[in-house]
Design a protein around this nucleic acid. Structure first.
Length: 497
RNA sequence: GGUCCUGUGGCCGAGUGGCUAGGCAGAGCUCUGCAAAAGCUCGUACAGCGGUUCGAAUCCGCUCGGGACCUCCA
């Protein structure tokens, strides 16, 4: 059995994963800013790290998974009037800031549930940890790496860089940073252009504001993650995840803050998922090309030809290794939808299949070996930096075998009883427990099932009497409703909704 | 401008220098009252040019194209 290897952004290579505390893993993932609705791009990290969370759990680790909710706004746009994102929108929508926060937090949780992601162990909010953030800033000031100016506090990047490698994570060179940082207004308070805010003085129009040793204000963008990660995972923890676009400056700054405050590098393995693109361009507010999750699920968006089920999205995301960009298109999603359907139907049938009690050997040793090999590679591929795409490819190679048994192209005993049992057990493990896939057709109730059975019975009767008018009518009408009826090889009928 | 990533068949996407990725779409066949589904078979793709090598999609160089970050951002 191979060991789990993950790509560490810090070292730019795959490394064997070893947890700091045997048997335990501390994992922090940057959560959503709840000043608006989540879009397709946001789905990727939460699904990616959900799979990692599930996989680590499967490997036997007790994982503490912390994912924050950013509910204290930051700057709408630096350079303009420093304005709190949430308070600005709140005025527009005539809502209390916390009402807005609650609304979008609820919506986020709903979407995550649709995706069948497991809720994190702790989901701390920024507003609930102002005290910790202020405490951390005080520590940094005490250490001499931050300075106060007009009620705001800035991190002294130049000083930090003199003894630490600022830019290590994002591959940036300090001199370049000093030269290439954009010329922005309202920066004159900073000693240096590369410095970033730990605490910002609040203008009178700010609704969200807290008292601090430096006056009334609000925390800087990067400090919340450092403070909350430290509180719940310790000065040093195993995994920090997030989108690639957060690498700089967010994560780089997190490292700097935490290192000064806690006297140790905070994170052992930095993991970054790549972007979802649309027509080759990153999906993002600034590009005006976002498809919100609610729009995706309802199909209500000019770019969408139809609605897509959350499981289709989940599957779509898993079909690509998380460090590659993933390009959105209707065609690609439709392909994912059909692929998932085929996989799921074979999977579903396999789960219901009853392996004979008596043990027997494989009639076709070659196929038996092949199947065992494909199953064995599930873990191999996952251990290779979560290559879910390759795991799925193997599953698809198993589909014809399963369907062959189902349709009796292949005799069931070509595979040994132990292989069949392993197939069931490992498919269950990877498809449901680790990949978190579930049935697309919602839970059908008993009454519906009974009605379908009745229709199937009537159709069978009609068919046996060669009354094809009736049998076709039943099938066609059901098709029109959206229920697909299929005649099986064994004379039975199945349906999918 | 700086730093970095990337370019695979109609579309999406794996690919550790030599062995069929896989999915979707398409074609043919089998099964079938018909249909759908399913099974079998098929396309021989790696931006271009040059180099290294017995051998390159995979390494190196150049050219062209796309993208990310440097500013809020998953």
């Amino acid at each position: 059995m191979s060991q789990l290897k993950v790509y560490n952004s810090l070292t730019r290579q795959k490394e064997v994963f070893e947890s700091l505390t045997p048997g335990h893993v501390g994992m922090y993932v940057c959560g959503p800013t709840v000043s608006g609705e989540s879009h397709l791009g946001h789905a990727r990290p939460y699904i990616t790290f959900d799979v990692l969370y599930r996989y680590l759990t499967h490997l036997g680790y007790k994982v503490r998974y912390v994912r924050n909710i950013t509910d204290a706004g930051h700057f709408e746009e630096e350079g303009r009037e420093a304005e709190d994102k949430i308070s600005k929108k709140a005025v527009l929508e005539k809502l209390e800031p916390m009402e807005l926060v609650q609304k979008y937090t609820n919506l986020f949780h709903w979407a995550m549930e649709q995706f069948n992601t497991i809720p994190p162990s702790i989901e701390p909010t920024a507003t609930g940890h102002i005290v910790e953030q202020i405490g951390m800033i005080e520590e940094i000031m005490k250490a001499g790496y931050a300075y106060e100016k007009n009620g705001s506090v800035y991190f002294d990047v130049k000083k930090y860089a003199a003894s630490h490698d600022y830019g290590k994570l994002s591959g940036r060179v300090m001199d370049d940073l000093l030269e290439t940082t954009r010329e922005l207004e309202g920066q004159e308070e900073k000693r240096d252009r590369a410095d970033f805010a730990l605490w910002k003085n609040a203008a009178p129009e700010h609704i969200m504001r807290w008292k601090s040793p430096w006056g009334v204000g609000f925390p800087g963008w990067h400090i919340e993650c450092s403070a909350m990660a430290t509180k719940y995972l310790g000065a040093q923890f195993d995994i920090h995840g997030g989108g690639m676009d957060l690498q700089f400056p967010h994560h780089e700054s997190e490292i700097a803050q935490s290192t000064i405050c806690n006297h140790t590098a905070p994170v052992r393995y930095w993991m970054h998922n790549n972007m979802i693109t649309i027509n080759g361009k990153k999906m993002g507010k600034s590009y005006n090309n976002v498809i919100k999750l609610t729009e995706l699920f309802s199909g209500n968006h000019p770019l969408l030809e139809k609605a897509f089920h959350p499981m289709t999205i989940r599957f779509f995301i898993l079909q690509t290794q998380y460090r590659s960009t993933l390009d959105f298109s209707n065609e690609a999603l439709a392909a994912a939808e059909r692929g998932l359907k085929r996989l799921w139907e074979a999977y579903d049938w396999m789960m219901k299949y009853e392996v004979r009690d008596t043990k027997y050997e494989a009639k076709d040793a070659e196929l038996d070996t092949k199947v065992n090999g494909l199953i064995g590679e599930f873990a191999e591929f996952m251990n290779d930096d979560l290559n879910t795409a390759k795991v799925l490819a193997n599953m698809f190679e198993l589909v014809p075998v399963i369907n062959g048994i189902k349709d009796k192209h292949i005799a069931a005993d070509v595979l040994s009883s132990s292989t069949l049992a392993l197939l069931q057990q490992q498919l269950k493990l990877f498809v449901e427990d680790i990949f978190g896939l579930k049935s697309v057709s919602g839970a059908e109730d008993e009454k519906m099932k009974a009605v379908m059975e009745l229709l199937i019975q009537i159709r069978k009767d009609a068919k046996s009497k060669k009354d094809f008018v009736t049998s076709d009518k039943i099938r066609n009408e059901l098709t029109a409703i959206g229920i697909q009826l299929k005649d099986e090889k064994d004379g039975g009928m199945s349906y999918s909704i």
